[in-house]
Design a protein around this nucleic acid. Structure first.
Lengths: 341, 341
DNA sequence: TTGAAAGCGTTACCAC
DNA sequence: GTGGTAACGCTTTCAA
């Protein structure tokens, strides 16, 4: 039995397709008895409207697209969760995709998604903003997520990476650390670059802390582990600041294997405050980004855009410094540390 | 300027819409010169086919749906990643949704998704399998993910939770532990129930290990933390086996706060082998589930179903026992432990 | 190799 | 309140 159409329902309920459509779409102008008859037919036929046909007629898809640079780790999982919270609240669907960090591929995905969504949330922290050309003439409302560059045309939600990194570094300096090493994020990644800048800016403040050492990473745990080993081999620093929590986790492992105590021998800090960070041993000092919140807000912004609101704001979130045991003397800090959204 | 349609392209390229369609869909029967003309028109008009119209005509959406019970933590993030790997490889889109763990809501989501996807991967580890009635007469091919019950009609990918939990518990027993406590997953969750059964079965093997203590959790970190505290308060056990890694992480934190050494005072084991588990201190002994792999394979199974393959297999993955420092004497085990996919 | 036209399943406008 | 009927944009016969 082929899947039921609106005509089958109309036939079963003894009404016209127009009436069925109205009944389904909660139009006011349907007699209660008629509506009941229709709805019961819908039920017994197990009828589900063909979304393609509907979107053809209404020019809406009731779907928002999400394009992410990656899918590894809790950062993206939290982001997706936040966005999903929003789509669910508004009865929308969520089409997910990611670009492997390749701007050209991102552009292609953007094109491919364009006809399937009403709006999209795009995160593409790459210097080459060429990909945005894939969504010209505002075919689909776009909200950018910490996508660097002067993306003037689109509402943008970004993180003040510089401020966050600056704060972390200052915190380390205040803790008396002078030889502070940095594990950088992927090259060409704007957020990573900003965090590096923040680190450097903080060091530049103090003439007695002009030691600077940067190990390249890629935001993944493994790269943090490798970077940690290289840093240790080059001479154990006083502190290590990893450009994100995932790398800090990897680095922590490297330090542990080297028999170094954290924070006793080396202080360690990360960035993002992903959920597991508070559960590490020692709990990780980090710059807390309200990840899920940002996702949710970005989605709400999409909705506003769909509603015709032309406000193109650029909201900038300043991460909160969350000091945990990985940079403080006391190893037993416990749960009473910074809050996350 | 309204978004370009196939007619605009046809006009621009001086051909019929039929020809444009053929050119775009890589039909063989189009003269090279014609195709080029069309493609260039497509490019200059920035034309993207209306997916709704297309799916109306072809009866395909080129999209697969994924319905998950939750979105928290690395387990689901890995699962999504694996599935995404598959959709991407096959040029399909991925529609994501989750049901807050409510079977009734899951049924609703299933209905809502039905017309928007060609197939779906559904994970609903709840006893009430009522939700599956939402996808009757095979309207959409379904692949089940560790959804308990005798879901005979659908291909199913499951984890041998009983065997995994049994293996973990035996490992603890072999380590000399006798008072082994268990932190259970959500009630009504079939996977959680199986893990509990496995734990009990292993204990039943040994007459000298009839101590049994179960603390209720919900698979979340926080619940693991709370459960850990309760267990400690009730008298520190020799070992604690948490029904998943997330709860083990929370529990680890509780043990740490209580000043207990792991594995010195209490051995600790989890289940799943999410990526961070190896980076904990101590690295966590766990039952390794090839999460991303399962996701990927489930997706491939969807593809096979679409291709008409009627093979309804029920693949069952037996988790591999991965022994790390959280249950062994040596705290410095390092990276040379079990592999994950 | 190309074009004309008949659907595909809805919605929305216009009569009644 | 309800029904008839053009769209909506694409694919796919069927002819030419």
């Amino acid at each position: 039995m082929r899947t039921a159409t609106i005509r089958d329902v109309a036939r079963a309920a003894n009404v016209s397709v127009a009436t069925v459509s109205r009944a389904i779409n909660k139009s006011e102008t349907v007699a209660t008895t008629t509506r009941d008859r229709v709805l019961s037919a819908v039920g017994s036929l197990d009828y589900v409207p063909h979304s393609g046909a509907r979107s053809l007629a209404t020019r809406r898809t009731d779907t928002v697209g999400v394009l992410l640079p990656d899918l590894h780790g809790e950062f993206f999982s939290e982001l997706i969760r936040g966005i999903d919270l929003g789509t669910r609240a508004h009865g929308l669907h969520l089409l997910l995709s990611h670009s492997h960090g390749d701007p050209a591929e991102a552009a292609a995905m953007l094109r491919a998604m364009r006809s399937r969504v009403d709006a999209m949330v795009v995160m593409s922290p790459y210097a080459d903003a060429e990909m945005l050309s894939a969504a010209p003439n505002g075919a689909v409302p776009l909200v950018l997520l910490s996508s660097g560059g002067e993306a003037g045309a689109y509402p943008t939600f970004s993180i003040d990476n510089h401020a966050g990194a600056f704060a972390i570094t200052c915190h380390l300096l205040q803790g008396g650390h002078r030889r502070i090493a940095f594990i950088a994020g992927p090259e060409n990644n704007i957020e990573a670059a900003e965090r590096l800048r923040g680190y450097r800016a903080a060091l530049a403040q103090r003439s007695d802390a002009m030691f600077e050492q940067v190990a390249q990473g890629d935001f993944g745990e493994a790269s943090g582990f490798d970077a940690g080993r290289r840093l240790i081999a080059a001479g154990v620093p006083d502190a290590i600041f990893a450009a994100n929590d995932m790398m800090a986790i990897g680095c922590l492992q490297a330090l542990r294997e080297a028999g170094l105590d954290v924070p006793g021998d080396v202080a360690l800090a990360g960035f993002d405050d992903i959920p597991v960070s508070r559960f590490l041993d020692p709990p990780l000092t980090t710059a807390a980004v309200p990840i899920a919140d940002i996702g949710r807000q970005a989605l709400e912004c999409c909705i506003a855009l769909l509603g015709g609101s032309a406000s193109v704001d650029h909201r900038n979130f300043t991460p909160a410094l969350v000091v945990r045991a990985s940079t403080s003397g006391t190893r037993e800090e416990g749960k009473k540390d910074g809050q996350r959204s």
